[in-house]
């Protein structure tokens, strides 16, 4: 565990609490992409298959169960409690391509051609693009509630912070997972435009608005 990894995980945790806070306080899931949320459930279920056979490290196990549980809970909230506020008409990014593309990448790049390794690789590629339906929804509405942008930022910062963590581990421990590193870099590039607008507008106290 190093400071980058810890900050990344805390950022990931924070993103979930910000999202739940947004839904509860505004009593609405407007501006949140159901499709991205569903992809995250798929990401965690395929990434954390090792919950079934261990080894169960306390910190990792608690976090894994929390990420699976909270993402399923958000889907439940969006599907039932706050269904009328969901922008179904605008939230129509074709996730089939993201899932199919990630699966092909997983078949091509994996540590071993076994079910769990292919699923692990699939989860990393899918996570790298899972925010796209959310960013697409943002693009279509052209603006976002500030709290929603904090959520997206914290979620993106998690993987961005894992990059110095990987560099640190490569140098200090001689350990490197190329699939995770490449997928993490792609994920951070996917977020680049959003980060730019977040830093130049939201941090300066302005509303998140995209140029027309």
């Amino acid at each position: 565990m190093n400071i980058f990894r810890l900050l990344g995980d805390l950022s990931h945790l924070a993103s979930i609490f910000i999202l739940l806070h947004k839904i509860r306080t505004t009593k609405s899931c407007a501006g949140i992409s159901f499709r991205s949320q569903a992809l995250y459930v798929l990401v965690y279920l395929t990434r954390y298959l090792d919950l079934l056979w261990g080894p169960w490290l306390l910190y990792n196990t608690v976090m894994k169960l929390f990420f699976i549980g909270s993402s399923v809970y958000v889907l439940y909230l969006m599907k039932f409690d706050y269904k009328p506020s969901h922008d179904m008409g605008l939230d129509n990014f074709k996730v089939e391509y993201l899932i199919g593309g990630s699966f092909v990448m997983a078949l091509l790049f994996n540590l071993a051609f076994t079910f769990d390794e292919v699923m692990w690789s699939f989860s990393l590629w899918l996570e790298s693009v899972a925010i796209l339906p959310q960013l697409f929804l943002l693009q279509r509405t052209g603006e976002a509630e500030t709290i929603t942008t904090h959520y997206i930022f914290a979620l993106g910062a998690y993987r961005a912070l894992y990059i110095p963590n990987w560099l640190y581990r490569w140098v200090m421990e001689g350990r490197v997972e190329f699939i995770a590193v490449f997928a993490g870099i792609i994920q951070t590039i996917v977020y680049a435009d959003f980060f730019y607008v977040y830093f130049t507008k939201v941090i300066q106290g302005q509303k998140f608005e995209l140029p027309a």
């Binding site: 990894r5 990931h12 990792n60 894992y162 963590n165 350990r175």
Partner: peptide
Amino acid sequence: NGEKKIKDEL
């Protein structure tokens, strides 16, 4: 060695 590495990240 060919021993499988434990996935210790999230």
